[in-house]
Amino acid sequence: MKAKLFLALLAGVLLLGACGRSSKYEPLREDRTSAADTAAVSADSTKVEITPTKLVKTADMRFKVKNVQQTGDAIAALTARDGGMVIHHQMQADVERSEDIRVSNDSVKRVSALRTNADMTVKLPSEKLESFMTEVAHMGMYVTLRKMDIEDRTLDYLSEKLKLKNRQDLVDQQKKGKVVIKNPVNVMLLKDDMVDQQIGNMRTDEAVKYSIVTLSFYQSNFINQEMIANDDPAAYQLPFVNRLAIALNNGWQLFVELILGLANLWVFITLGIGLWAMYRYYKRKHPAWFAGGIKS
C-alpha cells in the first residue's frame, strides 16, 4: 500500500516538472521569434545601394637613363599608346662647372659640365598602370625609387552619395510643400552642397578610371664644348705697330690743331708783338725816363 502511494506521488512530481519546463521554454521561443522579426525589419530599413569598389591608384618612380631627351620622347609615345596623356613635362640642364679657353683675340672655347634631369606627370587608364611602370623601368639604367599607392574611397563615395540622396529628398519635399524652409539662403546653400558632392564623386570616378604617375629621371654629367665670341673688351686691342702708327697720326693731328689755333689768334699775337716793339723802341730812345721810372 505504501509502495503504491509512493509511486503515485513520484508520478505527480514528474508530471508537474514536465509542465514547468514546458511553460519555461515557450516564452523563450516567442522572444527569439520576435527578435528575429525585429532584426529583419531593421535590416530592411537600413538597405543601401551597393556601390562598386572605388580604388584610386597613384605611382611614383625615379630612375637613371642614358639620355634624358630620348627617354622623355619614348615615355610620351608609350603614354599615347596606352590611351593616356602627358599632363606635365619639364626638362632642365644645370651647369655644374665651366671654363673658358682663349683660342684667339675674338674667340673663346667654353667647356661646360652639364647635369640634365626631367620631371613628367602622366595620366593613363588604371588597368594599364602596372604594365606601364614595368616598361618605363626597362628604359632606365637602374631604378632608385618605385612606389605605388592604392587608396580605397568606397565608403567616402557611398557617404557622399547617401548625403546627396538625403538632400535631394529634402529638396523634393520642399518643392511639394511638405517641408517649409523659410530662409532662401539655406536653400541655395543646400543646393550648392549637392553640387559639390556631385562634383566630388565625379572626381573620384575620374581618379578611379585614370591613374596619375609621377616620373623623375636623370643622366650622368656630360661635357659640352662650344665656340663663342670673346666678351672681354681688352682682348680686342690692335697690335703694337698699328697702335704706334695711330699714336704718330694723333700727334700730327694735335700739331695741326695747335697751328690752326694759333692762326685763329693772329690778331692778338700781332698786337702783342707791336706793343713789345714799341716798348723796346721807347726804352732805347729814353733810357733815363725808364731808369727814373724804375727808381721811383
Results as ranks from 00 to 15, higher is better:
Lys2Phe: 03
Gln69Asn: 15
Ala263Asp: 14
Ala234Asn: 14
Ser98Trp: 05
Val185Leu: 12
Ile223Leu: 11
Ser296Thr: 15
Leu189Met: 12
Asp192Asn: 13
Tyr281Ser: 05
Ala39Lys: 05
Val48His: 10
Lys209Ile: 00
Gly83Pro: 01
Ala137Asp: 03
Ser112Thr: 15
Arg167Phe: 06
Asp196Leu: 10
Val180Ala: 08
Ser159His: 09
Val103Pro: 00
Ala35Arg: 14
Leu9Met: 11
Trp252His: 08
Glu206Gln: 11
Gly20Pro: 00
Asn201Glu: 06
Met120Gly: 00
Ala137Phe: 03
Gln198Asn: 07
Asp192Val: 09
Asn117Lys: 05
Gly292Ser: 14
Leu170Val: 03
Val208Ile: 09
Leu15Cys: 08
Met148Trp: 01
Gln69Glu: 14
Lys285Met: 10
Val103Arg: 08
Leu15Phe: 09
Thr154Ala: 00
Lys47Cys: 04
Gln237Leu: 04
Arg203Val: 07
Leu162Val: 08
Met278Leu: 15
Met91Gly: 11
Leu190His: 00
Lys191Ser: 09
Glu49Tyr: 08
Asp149Asn: 13
Ala137His: 04
Ile75Arg: 00
Thr38Tyr: 14
Val41His: 06
Asn183Met: 08
Met194Glu: 03
Ala77Arg: 11
Glu135Cys: 02
Gln70Asp: 13
Phe217Pro: 01
Val187Asn: 03
Asp149Arg: 10
Ser22Asp: 08
Ile150Arg: 04
Gln70Thr: 12
Leu158Thr: 06
Ala3Arg: 12
Gln219Asp: 02
Glu151Ala: 11
Arg280Glu: 12
Ala77Asn: 05
Leu14Asp: 04
Thr144Gly: 07
Arg153Ile: 01
Val267Phe: 07
Met139Asp: 00
Leu124Gln: 01
Thr154Ser: 07
Val208Thr: 11
Glu206Phe: 06
Arg284Thr: 08
Phe255Ile: 14
Met61Arg: 02
Ser23Lys: 12
Asn224Met: 10
Leu170Tyr: 01
Leu14Glu: 05
Met85Pro: 03
Glu30Trp: 11
Ser220Gly: 04
Trp252Ile: 13
Ala74Asp: 01
Met202Val: 05
Ser22Ala: 13
Val208His: 02
Lys161Asn: 10
Ala74Gln: 05
His138Asp: 07
Ile50Phe: 11
Tyr282Asp: 07
Met278Lys: 14
Gly272Asn: 06
Ala8His: 13
Thr51Gln: 07
Thr53Trp: 00
Ile101Thr: 09
Leu16Thr: 15
Gln174Glu: 11
Thr270Ser: 10
Glu160Leu: 08
Arg29Trp: 03
Val267Gly: 09
Val241Gly: 03
Val13Met: 08
Ser220Pro: 04
Asp169Trp: 04
Thr51Ser: 04
Asn224Trp: 03
Gly261Thr: 12
Ala263Trp: 12
Phe268His: 09
Ala39Val: 07
Ile181Glu: 02
Phe290Cys: 01
Leu244Ser: 10
Arg115Tyr: 14
Ala247Ser: 10
Asp73Leu: 11
Leu260Asp: 15
His89Arg: 07
Arg29Leu: 12
Phe268Met: 10
Asp205Arg: 03
Trp289Gln: 11
Asn230Ile: 04
Met227Asp: 12
Asn117Tyr: 10
Ser22Gln: 13
Val95Gly: 02
Leu14Tyr: 06
His138Cys: 04
His89Phe: 07
